[in-house]
Design a protein around this nucleic acid. Structure first.
Lengths: 207, 207
DNA sequence: GAGATATGCAACGGATGCGTTTCGCAGCGC
DNA sequence: GCGCTGCGAAACGCATCCGTTGCATATCTC
């Protein structure tokens, strides 16, 4: 039995080595899910291994058999959430439609998802742990990059004002959704997306 | 000695009743400051009364003499941060200048301030405690309202595109700054403000 | 100065969580 | 079926924090 000082090999690439003992597969899956629930409900500071074990219906020793501690477990569980790609690039008619699509996707993600419920804990955790910070910032950078690309494409295609700064536009668009989630009582709804996109990207340039 | 079941009267309005025992003034001031530092460093979950006492150079019993517990103390200490009014309304030349001013102020607030260092903890705390949530959301709503007003004034004055939705514009502007602070490695700097404002509000309508 | 009062200090019982260990059992692969 | 191995249960020592208390001391008010 490996001492699991580094869990990355075992868990991150678990899907590769499909020859795993079904008991392990079952345990780790339950624990990861429970860890995310725990993180969402209790937050970063409130997160407890014993609580996760109870929640997962699993012995505490089982958790320590597979992860080295709180940090290892949380980091591993979070990888679970990161596997959501935003959307596909080439289906939308024009830049505005594409961006509205991206925003709707983000709004969706901020309504029900596990990720949304974990977001405050994630923000807090990123502040205090370098590993989580890398994960968190990396994930958001990738997600935001899709918006930057869409804006730039829109400008190149002549559909958007060339005065727009793609970086700032992406910050503003994504920022509005995230801000509404963590700083206000009223998360952004789908009905606000058109007005948001229209406001940030400017009104129709050509009609 | 009042049992301090409700601390609001004693502490929030402390400045009013200036006849206070200097020992109390001194203690509570130290503790409040220490509480903010603790919140910034350890986060909402890591926050501990005994740690605050150590930090403040004060006996634990002194804290319990003035506050009923963690929640009471944190809420009281946070009031300290909320007393920052954004700026004055009628000095700026035009709407764009006024909005850039507001954004610079927000960027400032996200660089060094205690509030910035407490922000992740605040977001997390607001998620789990209704009292903190009210404080947090209320403060941000007030701050954002200044932006909404400025945008609306700009539209009314014919300086901004009437197609802009003031609410969404404010969300986008404030959101970009906050997002950059809690979701990325690179907080927004003052040098980005002009591009941000220009991007969200549209390029010059009249030149 | 005298009396009031806030503080410091130390200790308390209780709770909770951590990370480890031991052992009997059940489920797995072959 | 049999050996292998992951699991559950329970207990461990240790640490931390909670919220409270009693008492001596320092500091304020008058």
């Amino acid at each position: 039995m490996t001492p699991t000082t580094e869990s990355a090999e075992q868990h991150a690439h678990q899907d590769d080595q499909r020859e795993l003992d079904p008991r392990i597969e079952r345990s780790t899956r339950r624990v990861r899910q429970a860890a995310l629930d725990e993180l969402a409900e209790r937050g970063w500071g409130g997160f407890g291994i014993e609580s996760v074990a109870r929640r997962a219906g699993v012995a505490k020793s089982t958790i320590y058999r597979h992860w080295s501690g709180k940090l290892d477990l949380v980091a591993d569980a979070l990888e679970e959430l990161v596997v959501q790609p935003p959307a596909d690039p080439a289906t939308a008619a024009d830049a505005r439609a594409r961006l509205e699509e991206l925003m709707h996707h983000l709004v969706d993600g901020m309504r029900d998802s596990t990720l949304s419920r974990c977001l405050p804990a994630l923000i807090e955790a990123a502040e205090h742990d370098p590993g989580v910070r890398r994960l968190h910032h990396g994930f958001n950078a990738r997600r935001r990059q899709a918006v930057v690309d869409a804006v730039r494409a829109g400008i190149d295609a002549g559909e958007l004002d060339p005065g727009i700064d793609p970086q700032q536009a992406a910050l503003a668009l994504a920022g509005a959704v995230i801000y509404a989630r963590v700083m206000t009582d009223a998360p952004l709804g789908h009905e606000h997306v058109p007005a948001l996109v229209a406001t940030v990207l400017g009104r129709a340039e050509r009609e």
